[in-house]
């Protein structure tokens, strides 16, 4: 089973912000009883009295494995560490502690070997706004060693498959809706034919039809191309129908990890209806909701 895992995340920690305990000035202030450190709130980004941000523990001892050709979902409230986790896997961040292995390579020591095998779609469709989808995608494709007439034809094929009209392919990105831009972002990732695709809320902001088109593409990638997918989403139904297994993150930690069916068995909907993944999510992460209710 271990050898079949294409992503291995082992006790990974990622912190942001200034570690005030290490600062000389903070030590001096502490000695004179003026330290801004608040250990109980160390994972919050609230500024301290001197205006500097405190240390934020974005990912806290996270461990999991993703098998080959698996769709692995990561769910969590805003700020739970999902996007940081994706950036760590995408070689855009380096872990402070722990180890990540992607298809046998450490992203820190062998970034290019990892980068050849992965691609990522983030929640914000980031493009050169004045350039057209074709110009943006041909740029992206060339970075992965592709180009020429065949690639241009492939771009048209992928974009039309995703529901983008042909006349939009040569218009500046800034003239397009967010949904259309998101489809171009997905096309950019597909062009490099990644073995592992990191999808960070890929359907956020899409209309229901576009959402289904994207979900169909994800299924095709898994079934036809054998792609492994790591998906973060706020759409519980999407996670339920697409993911083989789901991890729920909260405050930087994984607090539950199982198949959607097994997770649903752990919680009662409380209203007599069948338990949904949303019930599980709210049960596990809804402490704020409870605090407000109290």
């Amino acid at each position: 089973m271990q050898s079949n895992n294409v992503i291995i995340v082992d006790q990974v920690i990622k912190k942001f912000g200034k570690n005030q305990k290490a600062g000389l000035w903070t030590q001096i202030r502490k000695r004179f009883g003026r330290s801004g450190i608040d250990g109980a709130k160390a994972n919050q980004s609230k500024p301290s009295k001197n205006g500097k941000k405190k240390e934020v523990l974005a990912v806290n001892k996270v461990s999991f494995e993703v098998g080959n050709n698996e769709v692995f979902g990561v769910l969590g409230p805003n700020g739970s560490g999902k996007s940081t986790l994706i950036r760590l896997l995408a070689t855009l961040l380096l872990p402070d502690e722990g180890k990540i292995t992607i298809m046998g390579f450490d992203p820190e020591t062998h970034p290019m070997q990892v980068q050849e095998k992965i691609n990522r779609v983030s929640v914000e469709a980031s493009f050169f706004k004045k350039l057209s989808p074709m110009e943006n995608l041909i740029y992206g494709a060339r970075l992965y060693g592709k180009g020429g007439k065949e690639t241009r034809e492939e771009i048209v094929k992928i974009l039309t498959r995703l529901g983008l009209e042909k006349n939009n392919i040569y218009r500046p990105m800034e003239e397009m809706s967010r949904g259309m831009q998101q489809k171009v972002a997905i096309a950019r990732a597909l062009l490099s034919k990644p073995e592992i695709l990191l999808l960070d809320e890929p359907t956020t902001g899409l209309d229901p039809v576009s959402k289904r088109e994207v979900q169909a593409v994800i299924r095709e990638l898994v079934e036809n191309d054998g792609t492994t997918i790591l998906l973060t989403t706020h759409d519980m139904f999407e996670a339920d129908i697409l993911c083989n297994r789901v991890a729920i993150m909260h405050k930087g930690k994984i607090i539950a990890l199982d198949t959607p069916e097994e997770l649903k068995k752990t919680v009662s909907s409380g209203n007599g209806k069948e338990t949904t993944l949303e019930d599980v999510f709210i049960h596990l992460t809804g402490d704020k909701l409870r605090e407000h209710a109290e």
């Binding site: 950036r87 995408a90 070689t91 855009l92 290019m112 070997q113 980068q115 050849e116 992965i118 990522r120 983030s122 914000e124 980031s126 493009f127 050169f128 706004k129 992206g140 970075l143 992965y144 950019r188």
Partner: peptide, 14 residues
């Protein structure tokens, strides 16, 4: 400024 930096820096190029 364009927001593309992460995509360029995660591409497998020297």
């Amino acid at each position: 400024w364009e927001g593309t930096i992460e995509y360029t820096l995660m591409a497998p190029i020297n």
